[in-house]
Write a protein that binds this DNA or RNA. Structure first.
Lengths: 183, 183
DNA sequence: ATATTAATGAACAATTTGTTCGGTAATGTA
DNA sequence: TACATTACCGAACAAATTGTTCATTAATAT
């Protein structure tokens, strides 16, 4: 990718983040974005078809990183604990959220959180799917598999929502404990 | 309220519902709404400050009705079953959703479902709050009350989401069973 | 019967969107 | 270094949308 393209894309994302922390997504105009990014109007449209596509790619880059980390750390953790528990993975995820990515959390707790939580959920779904077998023991037999999967995801999202709304006062360890407690 | 006002308001709501079933909220313009409602532009703005206020009042009227029914039926149910179980209330809510209000469900399952689920959640919160004591027995002692409340709400919303996504194939009885099963 | 209030419709400025195009400058490659 | 490619510029553009104004008409409540 051309360095100019990278720089422009970066500038757009930065301006976008900046605006997102101040106002609702719907209220943000392309004019504001390009003003903040200091680029021409035509340039914006040569990068992104619409504002919605910008959001989509933005979220993909944002969450792709954190969930890739989880995926990669998964084997490592299995190694350390030498057990089948899925707890380390979620603990690690909560830790990652609290410590390493204030950027992401600023967005998850912003006025646009529903927007980001939606995208977060999509990524979470993939992660949980690959760990579904680890929850099997807690599942009642009469529940449909897909209902059970949906419930795990909802519970995680609910836990995260509560933690964020609650200013993340609790430690990742405690939150992980709560998460498994209610499951 | 003046009959003309009522009629206009009704016409706006009807046109709005109509459009909501076809496209995303953000894509709907005031022009389309007034065209469908067959009223003048100035008239619309004399009723609603903005499109967002229209949505707000629309949701309030919509969900206010269903949750009021629940609230009123609550005593009745307690009477019939002569027990403290909260199950009848939620069963009744699922039944109400499936049978009596295709209008509401069309919206909850439309492209705008996130929008309506948000408002639904707000109303649900109030309902659950007044029944919190009935869930006490299932709660672990070390969980904060507010976390527990949040989890009940998330679980209900998750159940509802799954049910709607799943075209409501299951009976309200089964869904209620699932709901209490995972709780 | 009358005063009040709501709806009309047309016109209005202001904002925003998405596109076009010739010119300029940075970039990757040979 | 020289060259061809490609991204950016920026100004201008039509089209759509927003939200307001105002004089006129018609329905309503009492």
């Amino acid at each position: 990718m051309d360095r100019r393209q990278r720089k422009t894309r970066e500038a757009i994302f930065n301006s976008f983040t900046n605006l997102l922390s101040k106002k609702e997504f719907n209220q943000i105009t392309v004019g504001e974005i390009i003003e903040g990014a200091d680029i021409g109007r035509a340039t914006f449209y040569s990068h992104f078809e619409t504002k919605d596509f910008l959001l989509k790619e933005f979220c993909e880059e944002l969450f792709c990183h954190i969930f890739d980390t989880e995926k990669n750390s998964q084997n490592e953790h299995r190694h350390i604990f030498e057990c089948n528990s899925s707890e380390p993975i979620f603990l690690h995820l909560f830790k990652h959220l609290q410590q390493n990515d204030n950027n992401i959390l600023a967005l998850l707790s912003s006025q646009n959180n529903e927007l980001f939580l939606r995208y977060f959920r999509i990524n979470l779904e993939t992660l949980i799917e690959s760990h579904l077998s680890l929850f099997e023991s807690k599942k009642s037999d009469n529940l449909p598999d897909l209902f059970w999967k949906n419930h795990i995801i909802s519970t995680f999202m609910g836990t995260l929502k509560w933690w964020i709304d609650n200013k993340m006062k609790e430690s990742p360890e405690v939150i992980t404990e709560y998460f498994f407690e209610v499951l």
